[in-house]
């Protein structure tokens, strides 16, 4: 068995709002092994970003985080003092954010910001830190790396800034990288480059990678395992092969139906869409979160919460009352299996 890097068990994030409690993340569990890429997919507001911020302990101060397990390299990082947590952040666990345009400090050079993180966590000289920064800038495909160190963020394009962010996150050689929609703000042509770069670096440095995205095409290319989130819950989890070829949860099936596949999707056929809107997560509700948008909803779907249960194959789980066989049949009729 491969080395376990991150273990998340029953993570919840609650945010107090004006008229109650917003249950943004509910009972999310997953794990990441060494050298493994876990993709978390789901639409905006499903709790993907909050999940990643909860792991980093960077949630907004009013958010309330709870979990049964939260371990990094076997160390509990749920109940550690902030001082210890800050030793971990940027060191064994790094994060790349959605907005490369604003994620670097405009007042300091690239070099300053890259050297700073290594010097915070390692006892190295300035020259050594600069050398590592140059090495990593070259690794992420930045030309004239040495001269970039004296440049300021505003002198670089969005794509370059995101490469700098990636290089900066790699400075301390982290075991785990969390990339929260790292390409959303970039041009489409740059998006693929950045993602392939991430995948490549992840393999080379044998890191665990959590990639949060809503781009299923990307997921299919680089994910080892996939967790599909909907309205604060993981509704399906499995290997990329399982989730893409044998989608079981009606929501996953609906998502895949929305994507045209060259050579497979009929010409002129309208693309699928999921009717309805995401339910409000304010206040508890004891039902399948997807019930009111689900084409297969039954009366029993609203009788209490539904547990994640194993599908037919090992490592594949889903959160639905229908049996795996019924789900497979549904997938066939929808043309997504």
């Amino acid at each position: 068995m491969s080395e376990r890097i991150l273990e998340v068990g029953n993570l919840t994030v609650d945010i107090p709002v004006g008229n109650g409690m917003l249950h943004a993340v509910q009972g999310v569990s997953f794990h990441v092994d060494k050298g493994e890429t876990l993709c978390i997919v789901g639409e905006s507001g499903c709790g993907k970003s909050l999940t990643s911020l909860a792991i980093m302990d960077l949630l907004p101060s009013k958010a309330i985080r709870n979990a049964n397990t939260l371990e990094l390299d076997g160390e509990d990082i749920l109940n550690v003092p902030e001082r210890r947590m800050s030793d971990i952040r940027g060191n064994t666990m790094g994060m790349i954010f959605q907005e490369p345009m604003t994620s670097l400090n405009p007042a300091f050079t690239i070099g300053n910001q890259m050297v700073e993180i290594l010097k915070r966590h390692r006892n190295v000289s300035n020259a050594e830190a600069r050398d590592r920064a140059i090495y990593l800038l070259e690794k992420v495909g930045i030309t004239a790396a040495a001269s970039r160190l004296s440049q300021y963020p505003h002198q670089l394009s969005g794509g370059l800034r995101q490469r700098v962010m990636i290089a900066m996150t790699l400075m301390c050689g982290p075991d785990l990288i969390i990339a929260d929609e790292p390409t959303t703000a970039l041009d489409v042509t740059i998006q693929a480059q950045i993602l392939l770069l991430l995948a490549e670096l992840q393999r080379e440095f044998e890191m665990g990678l959590i990639l949060i995205t809503h781009d299923l095409g990307v997921v299919a290319r680089i994910a080892d395992r996939v967790a599909v989130m909907y309205a604060g819950e993981v509704v399906e989890e499995g290997t990329a092969n399982q989730v893409f070829n044998r989608p079981t949860h009606p929501y996953t099936q609906g998502l895949l139906e929305c994507i045209p596949i060259p050579g497979k999707t009929e010409r002129g056929k309208p693309l699928g869409s999921i009717p309805g809107i995401v339910p409000s997560l304010v206040g508890r509700f004891e039902a399948c979160h997807f019930a009111d948008r689900c084409p297969f909803a039954m009366d029993s779907c609203t009788d209490g919460n539904i547990a994640l249960r194993p599908a037919n194959e090992a490592g594949h789980a889903y959160r639905c009352l229908l049996s795996p066989e019924q789900c497979a049949a549904n997938a066939k009729t929808k043309g997504v299996a």
Binding site: R89, E116, I117
Partner: peptide, 17 residues
């Protein structure tokens, strides 16, 4: 509340820094 302060915290920098 800006993104680069979140980045700075994600780098594990000391609160004073």
């Amino acid at each position: 509340s800006s993104d680069y302060i979140r980045t700075a915290r994600a780098k594990g920098l000391r609160p004073s820094v």
